[in-house]
Amino acid sequence: MSLSSADVQSIAHLARLSIEDQDIPEYARNLSDILNFVEQLGKVDTKGVDPMAHPLDMAQRLRVDEVSESDQRELFQSIAPATEAGLYLVPRVIE
């Protein structure tokens, strides 16, 4: 697997990462190396093997439905880049 510059750009877009143009070839090379390295998995016979998502065979625990959190807006927004009237501000969302 060898990624082109265009591949790198489209992955970076999907991940919302700005990448400097001059860095693209190096990313392409590094990412291709990594993908080539992991591609050895393709040769492994995994027929009938269940995918393993968690190290432990446990089921989800359930929480009792009760309100346990109180308003901490002031604290949480004290570390926010931009707020107004209790809202987080972002460049205009167009729908």
């Binding site: 998995l41 995994t46 093997v49 269940d50 998502a53």
Partner: peptide, 15 residues
């Protein structure tokens, strides 16, 4: 399937 699912299967083999 080729990457993530496969890796999860091999993960079980390693376990």
């Amino acid at each position: 399937d080729a990457y993530y699912l496969k890796a999860q299967q091999v993960r079980r083999m390693i376990r």
